[in-house]
Design a protein around this nucleic acid. Structure first.
Lengths: 159, 159
DNA sequence: TGATACGTTCAATACAAATTGAACGTTCGC
DNA sequence: GCGAACGTTCAATTTGTATTGAACGTATCA
């Protein structure tokens, strides 16, 4: 049964674009009563030590896992948290947010470039009013999307 | 300037996991005053005819492009729409929705499997109450996420 | 009807991203 | 200080996915 869940979660996170290991690692720990070490992960899931290390770190940053000390043990052990709302929120902020940023920069750059080009060539064939209008519409949408995003995030934050 | 936008949009859609051609095609048509044909796309963007055909169809399904007839022309021409809210909404429903479905099925299957297994082996070492509890928490979250999703979508729909 | 100009499909290919694993740095016990 | 047991890193590799392009189906016009 656990195998089924783990496999399914792996497929899901893979198609969502965050790698298969992520879903597998979280699900395995989530369905384990005992905290799990990196070795447990490599053995149970058949993934490499490197992959386990990186995945666990990312999940920890998102608040999906928590490090647990076990006295007399030198290994790091992890247990799963179940604040799914917070976890997803942070993951989205991290993954999407970072991806949006670069696009944002380019949008601004291109807009500035357009301003300059329009000012310096009042008599050529380019249809500046058309371009301006289209860019303005993108800007407007970005503003609305931003507000929607913020409010959704807020709702999720409140559980 | 258009080149910059097109390149940026391509990068963005690529990292978002829907392919580079998608962003490029839409942006090119969006910044074109005249409706564009598949040939225009292959020439301007340097993509193949097959890619242009598939991309355009997907964008049309999402309501991002509209076919335009030009009398005396045998080619299909497309122009861009700017209802970004609706476009994104449909795209998300399509891309995410479809990806969620399969995961949903597996969740249900695994749950049934667990019920059966728990009933048939009351005396083995498996910790059924623990597993049940964890699965229940996933279910609960799915419900909340579904409601949040629906309401967000609704907001976007309303512009 | 035949020839031409399209758009579509899908197996082959190219590309990007995830995963591996050997080398490395660090910590702990002795 | 030394060795062993870890976790981490990153270049090489594997894997998954987007893209290509030749073959095909279809519509149009002479």
């Amino acid at each position: 049964m656990r195998r089924r869940f783990i496999e399914a979660a792996g497929q899901m996170t893979q198609t969502l674009g965050v790698g298969r290991a992520l879903g597998q690692v979280f699900t395995h720990i989530y369905f384990s009563r005992q905290p799990q070490s990196l070795d447990d992960l490599t053995q149970s899931l058949g993934i490499s030590k490197g992959s386990a290390s990186m995945t666990v770190r990312q999940l920890e940053q998102w608040g999906a896992l928590r490090k647990v000390w076990i006295k007399g043990e030198r290994k790091d052990y992890y247990e799963a948290l179940d604040h799914f709302g917070r976890i997803i929120r942070r993951a989205l902020l991290d993954v999407i947010g970072r991806k949006m940023e670069s696009g944002d920069h380019v949008l601004q750059d291109a807009e500035e470039e357009m301003q300059e080009a329009a000012a310096g060539s009042a008599d050529d064939a380019t249809d500046w009013t058309f371009l301006r209008d289209r860019v303005a519409k993108i800007r407007a949408f970005r503003g609305r999307a931003q507000r929607l995003w913020d409010s959704s995030i807020l709702k999720m934050l409140l559980k």
